[in-house]
Amino acid sequence: MTHPTGRQLRSLTTPRAAALAGVAFALLFGVVLVVMRTSLPPGAQLGSQWSDGSSGRLKLAIVLTPFAGIAFLWFIGVLRDGLGQLEDQFFTTVFIGSGFLFLAMIFTSTAVGAGLLASKQFVAEAGTRTEVAAFGQGLLLALTDTYALRMAAVFMMSVATIWLRTGLMPRWLVVVTYLVAIAVLVASDVSPWTTVAFPVWVLLVSLLLLFAPAASTRLPDRA
């Protein structure tokens, strides 16, 4: 490929400020989870929340989710760029694949919620509306709690394994990452609020990348 003469070309580098994407995701997705948990509290009759005045909060979660997903894509890019020449195809495949699956299922669950809210005006019979809402709510929670957040746990485990094998991050962060991943993987069925640990972990990693001394976070350049 030829380049125009007289033009200075520079290789692309990822600025440290790109880690702000992780902060944005943590805040946005944290709000989404809190809104969803308060709108769909455990123990309430399945499907009743859609007609009990919670639709406004659910609309907020639906609006914020795409922006949280965009920020998470940038966060994945920041983590992968930091690997440099130490990138391993096996662990990177698991790391990126689990991140993409997490995003896909979060978007799908949000689309289910948006469809349910939009369908309320087209279902006239109260009994049918409740049945449709119950099915949609069960599908939404299954996608979020059973599948998406377990992919988030796999994402954290793969990242922690990469850090452990390469020494790119402090050992205490590796241990914390494994513990949070296990909590999200196992305890999400016990307490739905355990899932908030994932955006908190992303926030911790992003702040470490932003404010840690440059010498301690300098990673190998790509070949």
Rank of each mutant, 00 (worst) to 15 (best):
T2M: 12
H3S: 14
Q8F: 10
Q8W: 07
L9G: 01
S11F: 04
S11Y: 02
P15Y: 01
A19R: 00
L20F: 00
G22A: 00
F25L: 01
L27W: 00
L28R: 01
F29W: 03
G30M: 03
G30T: 01
V32F: 06
V34S: 04
P41T: 10
P42V: 15
P42L: 07
A44Y: 15
Q45D: 12
Q45K: 11
L46A: 04
G47E: 00
Q49F: 09
D52N: 11
D52A: 15
D52G: 07
G53D: 09
S54L: 12
S55C: 11
S55M: 15
R57C: 11
K59W: 14
L60R: 11
A61T: 03
I62H: 11
V63P: 05
L64H: 10
T65K: 05
F67Y: 08
A68P: 04
I70R: 05
A71I: 01
L73N: 01
L73A: 02
L73K: 02
G77N: 00
D81S: 03
L83S: 01
G84Q: 00
G84Y: 03
G84P: 02
D88C: 00
Q89Y: 00
V94K: 04
F95C: 02
S98M: 06
S98H: 09
F102C: 05
A104Q: 06
I106N: 12
I106G: 11
I106H: 08
T108K: 13
V112A: 09
V112L: 09
G115M: 07
L116E: 07
L117A: 07
L117I: 08
A118G: 09
S119W: 04
E125F: 13
A126S: 06
G127R: 03
G127D: 01
T128R: 14
R129S: 05
T130W: 07
E131K: 04
V132S: 03
V132Y: 05
V132L: 13
A133R: 04
Q137V: 02
T146Q: 14
A148P: 15
R150G: 09
V154D: 08
V154T: 14
M156K: 05
M156N: 11
I162Q: 07
W163K: 06
W163D: 11
W163C: 10
R165A: 14
R165K: 12
T166C: 10
G167K: 07
G167V: 08
L168G: 12
P170H: 08
L179W: 02
L179M: 06
L179T: 04
L179N: 01
A181R: 02
I182R: 05
A183S: 08
L185H: 08
L185T: 10
A187R: 12
D189K: 09
V190W: 15
S191E: 15
T195S: 12
F198N: 02
F198W: 09
P199Y: 09
V200R: 06
V202P: 02
L203W: 09
L203P: 07
L204F: 04
V205Y: 10
L209E: 08
L209H: 07
F211H: 10
A212C: 08
P213M: 11
A214W: 11
S216Y: 13
T217E: 11
R218M: 11
D221W: 09
